[in-house]
């Protein structure tokens, strides 16, 4: 778990530098990037897969908490930069909870988590009008075991890209 977060942090920092450097597609970028570039795939910095995998589309929360962790803030910093670079996208921020709670409370907790992520993105310059929040409570876990290792990954907010480039 911790390893994964560190990895995503590095990616977020890389994407930050990548985005601020100019002329990504003018042929003067590094050989490696040129070799691997496939439009629409995770190698395409403007693609949704890139956002999901390289920037990181989710942040995790502590038990019953909606406060962002330092790791969560770094992911969201990356999301903010990406969203401000790719301004034609809108997003829905989903909030989720683990199964250790009652249905209604978890819906409210998921709403808190999603809104926490939304507010942070707003504070980093993303227009509030591009974002909607949605809570799934405990209805859509991604991990199904009944152990903390799964619960930790289910207590999340996920930034879902909802519309593509409109031209």
């Amino acid at each position: 778990m911790h390893l994964k977060i560190s990895f995503l942090m590095v990616c977020a920092v890389i994407s930050l530098t990548a985005c601020t450097s100019s002329n990504r597609f003018d042929g003067s970028s590094t050989n490696q990037a040129a070799e691997n570039f496939i439009p629409g795939s995770a190698s395409d910095p403007e693609s949704v897969p890139y956002f999901q995998q390289k920037v990181g589309d989710r942040v995790l929360f502590e038990v019953n908490q909606s406060t962002l962790t330092p790791e969560g803030r770094i992911i969201l910093d990356g999301q903010a930069i990406w969203l401000m670079t790719n301004t034609d996208y809108t997003v829905i921020i989903e909030g989720h909870a683990d199964e250790q709670g009652t249905r209604e409370y978890n819906l409210a907790l998921g709403a808190r988590r999603a809104d926490e992520a939304r507010s942070y993105l707003v504070s980093r310059g993303v227009s509030a009008g591009r974002m909607q929040v949605l809570s799934y409570g405990k209805e859509r876990p991604i991990e199904v075991c009944s152990e903390e290792s799964c619960y930790a990954r289910n207590r999340r907010s996920v930034t879902v890209i909802t519309s593509g480039l409109t031209g």
Partner: peptide, 9 residues
């Protein structure tokens, strides 16, 4: 019922 707005329910 409950209504959630701006993260508050």
């Amino acid at each position: 019922y409950s209504l959630s707005q701006g993260g508050n329910t």
